[in-house]
Design a protein around this nucleic acid. Structure first.
Lengths: 219, 219
DNA sequence: AAACTTTTGTTATAAAAATAACATTGTTAA
DNA sequence: TTAACAATGTTATTTTTATAACAAAAGTTT
């Protein structure tokens, strides 16, 4: 593996793909495989084999000629790059349908990321467990974040609570936020913000479907 | 506005941003505003004003000097570009937590995209309505897709059903799929596939948080 | 009214990302 | 044993995306 300094220079897209490679590789392990070729990874990810090899070159991993890459070695190496040494605790703010989907979907999938607490304003939810994760009230948010050393928050509250929740998370010392609400947020530098809007995704698909139909109509 | 042919040449990233601009502009309309500057849009989207102006140039929209852009005009223009003329019907395959979150989140947000049917394997859900959307059984999938002229599907089934569901959707003539399951899919050319994995998003945030802490640790 | 300011729109440049080209090397097969 | 093959690893090139530079014009200030 390469020097830690070089990690910082990895392209953003490579970081994303490493996470995706690992996901695919974990499935391969379950299927009992030990080795995989770059063109197989590429097929799964809908990218080119060159891109796979280039990414692996960047992290300093070498496969075996004509045997491909050792899957478990590669999984471990990707782990040393993108994971923290210790488990990173995550708070889920907003335990509605989306929030519960995330807990269920995420639970146990990655060793180094753990949704350690749900937070919700609904009194009926406070004190309950959801798929094994305890739900706290908003008044306990700051305390729980400190007690559990939570660094990252997933924001799945209703849009009208998004800004206030984000502000409180930042004030409580959160260092990263994944915002699934409809409202673009602002955070100070030093806090990493990732926003995802399902409407945009769907609109993009709709656009390219429309484009495809226009292309076909031309013939 | 520009010629339809030019639409096809719009950069992919511009398409995504147009959707996001519209989202932001719709919020501004609700706030009663009529005009907006490029640097204001930029601030909301965490990008540069130049990028905003360049995107708008690409779609052939002109603002007014020192007054900025007319919000409702711009919303309409973006609509003519990314929306279809008629409403595009969408099927939601898998009415679990995530599926229901999507219906609720999406319903009524965009005039030209409509989740017209939910499909689920669970007999208790079949025949029920979820936030106004009827849920059908898998045996009715092909029929409903044809009857309602559904072009696009959102896949939110449990991972073990993902491959089979996708295959049936493709066979039924679906032209676009948004895959929220954990399993990378394969579709024939002519079907537009967009995959989104929440784990990758969270891992990316965790990585950059870690990087930020490493940077700080150096001082 | 002249100089300055602010904002748009466009072209030019730089940076990032993806792809292509190709060298290398075990392995297989004639 | 030598040629062909199939795979990796790296450098070079192209494409895409983002940023910078700057011209133009409408308004503001002195």
């Amino acid at each position: 593996m390469k020097d830690q300094k070089e990690l910082m220079n990895l392209p953003h897209k490579t970081i994303e793909r490493l996470s995706q490679y690992r996901r695919a590789l974990l499935i391969c392990v379950d299927e009992g495989r030990t080795h995989i070729y770059s063109h197989e990874i590429a097929k799964i990810q809908h990218i080119t084999p060159v891109q796979v090899r280039r990414d692996l070159m960047l992290i300093g991993y070498s496969g075996t000629l004509r045997k491909g890459y050792n899957i478990s070695e590669l999984i471990n190496l990707i782990g040393t790059i993108i994971d923290s040494e210790k488990v990173t605790n995550v708070a889920l703010v907003g335990v509605g349908n989306l929030g519960r989907a995330l807990i269920k979907y995420f639970n146990g999938k990655r060793h180094k990321l753990y949704i350690a607490a749900g937070i919700d304003i609904n009194p009926e939810k406070i004190g309950k467990d959801y798929y094994g994760i305890p739900c706290y009230g908003p008044e306990d948010m700051e305390r729980i974040i400190k007690e559990k050393d939570i660094r990252i928050a997933i924001l799945t509250v209703p849009v009208q609570n998004a800004v206030e929740s984000a502000q409180r998370l930042v004030d409580a010392g959160i260092k990263g936020i994944v915002n699934y609400t409809n409202k673009p947020l602002n955070v100070p530098s030093g806090v990493y913000l990732e926003e995802y809007d399902m409407v945009t995704t769907l609109e993009k698909v709709a656009f390219y479907v429309k484009l495809g139909e226009m292309e076909k109509g031309k013939d």
